[in-house]
Amino acid sequence: MTSTGVETDGPGGAVGGDSAAPDTAPRAFDAFRSGWETEIGDGFPLPTFSAATTRDFRVTSRATKVGDVAITDLHGDSAIRTEGPLNGVEDQVRMYVVQRGSWTLGAPLARGEQTVRAGQFLIRHIGRPLHFETVPDTTAKVLVLPAAMLTPLLGARQSVSGPADSAEVRLLVAHSNMIYETVADLGPAGVQAAHNTLIELAKSVARCRVDDAEPQLAPALAQAAKDLADSHLADPELSGTMLARELNVSVRNLQRAFAAAGESVTAYIRQRRLEEARLALTAPSGRLSVSELAAHWQFADSSHFIRAFKKHYGRTPTEYARSAVPARNRAGTGG
């Protein structure tokens, strides 16, 4: 795990400083590009900027890299715009948090264009290169994150957005700011912890927005959870928490998906285990004892299993097994 950082000032100096003379702007852009490519560029190449941007480059920025995550903060007195051919694949997730101005992804009026305005954030999977542009006086934080960690949470939408003043976003911003202050002094374990925390905080932002914005996915989510539970019924670790983790959703979202159909995760798991135990009781050979069934299907003990079974089927497991024997015999002699 590596970490590095760079600060570059455009001709305006500190954020909010005075604009410089236009003839210094190209030199400022060259310094910015050189610093980026030296310190950050490996794995995070700069796009091609428009000629108007490089001629009037009044931007203050700072950036750092922590493993496969890059963090950039910038303020542009001037507008920033990219241009030129877009080729190749860009499998990344980017998060934009805009404090002032606006940041637009995609060419104006192009399909899939998105604008992040002041006070908003956007997390988006970037599957192919996109142009972007900002308006003058834009202040924003941009994080480049590993796609494998975030895309499962985004689902088919491939992006989530919302207010930048939510608790989760504020915590993420504060953590990324602290990385700037400490990264040069961190040892390998500290860098790893800073990286992992950044990823988990980004996940929390994505989960929160998906939970709030995707109630229409509830039936599909509930069915996916049921299918997964059915394949792990004998697993002692099976629970709502385990299912949520495997499906990359929050426990709250999973519970809401089941509640939409008038069910609960715990009740579904217990019902399916009782159904499997009932089938085992009527098996023609190799039948397990009541205590063995209770242990196999993860009931606390035989008493709990018997009570649950009787409540569900109206008879104890032993009574049910005895009643099933004549029925099998009649079925075997009929014809």
Rank of each mutant, 00 (worst) to 15 (best):
88 G>L: 08
199 I>C: 04
157 R>K: 09
166 S>T: 15
288 L>F: 05
210 V>L: 08
159 S>C: 11
92 Q>W: 14
37 E>N: 15
173 V>A: 12
5 G>N: 01
228 L>M: 13
6 V>M: 09
70 A>V: 11
294 A>Y: 05
175 H>C: 11
108 P>T: 10
233 L>R: 06
182 T>M: 15
3 S>Y: 09
225 A>K: 00
335 G>P: 03
149 M>H: 07
235 D>L: 03
128 R>S: 14
100 R>A: 14
267 A>M: 07
23 D>M: 11
67 G>S: 14
133 E>A: 07
294 A>N: 07
148 A>T: 13
147 A>C: 00
113 E>V: 13
83 E>V: 11
213 A>R: 00
100 R>W: 04
89 V>I: 13
282 T>Q: 11
218 A>G: 10
45 P>Q: 06
141 K>V: 13
151 T>N: 08
248 N>D: 12
283 A>T: 14
318 T>H: 11
298 Q>E: 15
297 W>M: 11
199 I>N: 00
127 G>D: 10
198 L>E: 13
176 S>A: 14
240 G>Y: 03
207 R>E: 14
147 A>F: 01
77 D>N: 09
119 G>C: 10
220 A>V: 03
67 G>K: 03
7 E>K: 09
189 A>I: 12
19 S>V: 14
201 L>P: 04
234 A>M: 12
323 S>C: 00
331 A>N: 06
314 G>V: 07
333 T>Y: 09
278 R>C: 03
118 A>S: 14
28 A>N: 03
173 V>C: 11
211 D>C: 07
173 V>E: 10
94 R>W: 04
139 T>N: 08
20 A>S: 15
37 E>T: 12
186 L>F: 11
225 A>F: 01
28 A>T: 04
274 L>G: 03
208 C>K: 10
